[in-house]
Design a binder for these strands. Structure first.
Lengths: 198, 198
DNA sequence: TTTTTATTCAATAAAATTGTTGAATAAAAA
DNA sequence: TTTTTATTCAACAATTTTATTGAATAAAAA
């Protein structure tokens, strides 16, 4: 660990994030990461000692950034519907820049161990679930298990972007058009989520 | 390639599928696969020559099996709603036994190349999309881009199972209860899909 | 029984990747 | 200027994983 901060350590992490989360190269080597970061491979070991520790650092940072952003949305004093709208915008932007992030988290969680998850699922998520339950009582959204409402929201939001490489082939859509499709889903998701069915 | 079929080749592929798709060990070595299959590692090379070719074979077989099953559902002469119900059941069963399958396909598609996708997205999917459009005309489902209806269905179905390891932590639910939750979503998904909102 | 075939086994080669080290360098700080 | 610090560089060791090979074995087929 260096005494003054030249940004190299962070730059290595950011590059690793880009390769892993944006490009989806889940088997990236330290060499590939170093090259992409424009540093010598020694620097990677200098800062992180081992590949595993770099991966773990990236994992933790991504996890914290993600839950922080979501928590901020969920804790904001906005009315429920606007809160959900912001949640969708924030998450959609994130998914567009880092479509493989969730996939990475899910496939690495077993090898890295759950202790790296930190304070995921504390406070904000819990109170947001209660808020969902309250809205159901009010009748503004369809009654169901609050967890299901939560998962529906993120399903409709995430899945099409996670599976983009497959669905682009399935539907023969190029990258640009597919992204437009994904962004266009925003309004539709709000409709599905907020207009009580039956 | 052996002249008589002793089932070993298939057993190796099946074991690889289990390790990759059920256990989610995306970095599995040929040794791990051979051990789990109860064969010598030589056998793996005897049948597949290289790890890459084994992975490719597994990929192709999984891809074909998946699209065949889906095509069968989509082509069946059932009324639309029952067709969708079958689709959900078939896919849900598959997701429960192989939760990492889609993740694997999506992360390997870049390294392996799209030529392995075969005849994905031909005939059945296209005619199913037309059927969806027709149902929208009939008013039995909400009007939207047919592709969005399709993606909504699979989003609501797949995402909670793909993300299970993460969401089990987030909601502090054990594996058994989480699976019950996932199965219980079936009816709710049908409701969301079929009851026109607004 | 003889032959064929599938598979194992051991040994080893080849390749890829990671991790280590100590000296060299260049820039910033003192 | 001297010192410190971050980083590079080259060389190499260690480890892991993959791939090859040829002989051995055991069962099935002829």
């Amino acid at each position: 660990m260096p005494l003054k901060d030249t940004g190299t350590e962070q730059s290595i992490k950011d590059t690793a994030k880009h390769i892993l989360f944006a490009e989806g190269k889940l088997h990236a080597t330290t060499q590939e990461i170093a090259d992409a970061a424009g540093v010598n491979r020694s620097a990677v070991h200098y800062y992180f000692r081992s590949r595993d520790q770099l991966i773990a650092a990236v994992f933790v940072e991504a996890m914290n950034a993600l839950s922080e952003r979501l928590d901020q949305c969920m804790e904001s004093p906005l009315p429920f519907r606007e809160k959900v709208e912001r949640l969708i915008s924030v998450f959609l932007d994130d998914m567009i820049s880092y479509p493989y992030q969730e996939t990475f988290l899910v496939t690495e969680i077993n090898t890295l161990g759950k202790h790296l998850l930190g304070n995921l699922g504390t406070g904000p998520v819990h109170s947001f679930l209660e808020e969902i339950a309250a809205e159901m009582e009010r009748g503004s959204i369809q009654k169901m298990e609050p967890i299901n409402f939560f998962m529906n929201l993120f399903s409709l939001l995430s899945y099409p972007l996670i599976m983009a490489p497959l669905y682009r082939e399935l539907f023969q859509i190029n990258e640009k058009n597919y992204q437009e499709l994904a962004i266009g889903r925003k309004k539709m998701i709000l409709n599905m989520i907020f207009n009580p069915f039956q």
